[in-house]
Design a protein around this nucleic acid. Structure first.
Lengths: 222, 222
DNA sequence: TGAAAAATCACCCGTTCGGGTCATATCGCC
DNA sequence: GGCGATATGACCCGAACGGGTGATTTTTCA
């Protein structure tokens, strides 16, 4: 803990130090070329690399890198679980996923675990270096298609054919209010609220309060 | 509708056409310089610009731009509401927010409304042109700090001191299961589930199913 | 104009939920 | 060894909820 603070302090005091990078990637060739790319560039330093998550988790706190490049498909523990652990050990460290996967689930899980950026493996060397610089200066570098995926995930979907009033009631429900409280807020009787909610349940194909709230929030219906 | 499809078809067939851009921005000077920047660049064309949302909404369907640059602070209807309307009229059109605001709420509201990217106004002219190109090729250009803000919003927070078992029960609750169903899933009695849930309520400071689910999902506790 | 959809309200009935209280077993930690 | 936190379980009670049925009014749209 003491060491940790000193390291952080040193990094802040000497911003012209090279950015130190660790690589976690099971393919030896890719690991070697990433290493070369980073060490060969002005202002970057590859201080360690690992072929699996377990070894990395054990040893990386000695390295204290500024940035980690993380593959997802590793033997044993996945790169995503590894991110979760790493972030507990070193919350100040920026982790960039560098992987072939570009499916929603994997991308979002990585970001939830604490990754600060997400590059697909076809990214050119100079773009990788740019991304490392960018993440270190407070950004979140992503491949273009990943960025769009991330931004699209915010879009409110109105897929289910709820009426305006029903959406209004549902959004009240999502604040955790009781029928009575919703009724008071919308200036209608609580029987009317019940009536709306029964219709909402039918349209959402659910049968309880919690289920409706869960669907509404997960699918961004409100 | 017919016109709309023809326009789309034409755009897809002739990718070398300049990218057509409309600007919605109330400051005349900024509007004029953006116009100049875009028209002065190879491969771009500024086909229209508006000083307020209402006029834009009325007339822009004639312009059918590929990309819209949208300010947020407009006289009358806000840029965010304008995005919502525009997206209904022209779902294929990419909208980039170009504004001074960089507060969470405004940024996320913009993206929920359907914006495909978000640039802060200190963005350099050539970066604006890059962003337009990027959004047109399926990306989601954002200023670096905005990107980090967006990515951070995914992070699972474990701020509230729930025990592992409590988190497990809560995550079941968030799927909309009844106490009985959770009990069966976790192989415990439903009275135990109730007991856990009562403790969860205390820790989350809530007093109902819906409220707990809402907090858990909104604050990403599970 | 006239049918369909949406919004409003009411009542019944059985089930689930929320709050309270209490008890036991286990685990980690000082 | 004992204290606190956690996990497990039970019982009671009243309030809230879910499902069904039915009715009136307003809005919408063809």
């Amino acid at each position: 803990m003491g060491d940790y603070n000193i390291a952080t302090y040193a990094r802040r005091r000497r911003p012209l130090d090279p950015i130190s990078v660790s690589i976690i990637e099971d393919d030896h060739d890719i690991r070697a070329s990433l290493s070369l790319i980073i060490d060969g560039a002005e202002g970057f330093e590859c201080i360690s690399n690992y072929g699996d998550a377990e070894t990395a988790l054990q040893d990386i706190s000695q390295d204290m890198p500024d940035v980690i490049l993380m593959d997802i498909e590793l033997p044993g523990m996945s790169g995503i679980d590894c991110v979760r652990q790493m972030k507990k050990q070193m919350p100040e460290c920026d982790i960039l996923m560098l992987t072939v996967h570009d499916h929603d689930k994997i991308v979002f899980e990585s970001l939830c675990a604490g990754a600060c950026g997400y590059l697909t493996k076809n990214t050119r060397p100079r773009h990788i270096l740019n991304a490392i610089r960018e993440v270190r200066s407070g950004g979140a570098p992503m491949s273009t298609n990943i960025a769009r995926m991330v931004v699209n995930s915010f879009k409110t979907r109105h897929s289910v054919g709820l009426s305006d009033r029903e959406r209004e009631v549902l959004s009240q429900l999502c604040t955790g209010k009781s029928y009575k409280m919703i009724a008071d807020t919308l200036f209608i009787s609580s029987d009317t609220v019940r009536s709306h909610i029964k219709n909402i349940y039918k349209k959402l194909e659910v049968s309880s309060n919690a289920e409706a709230v869960a669907r509404a929030l997960k699918e961004k219906l409100v």
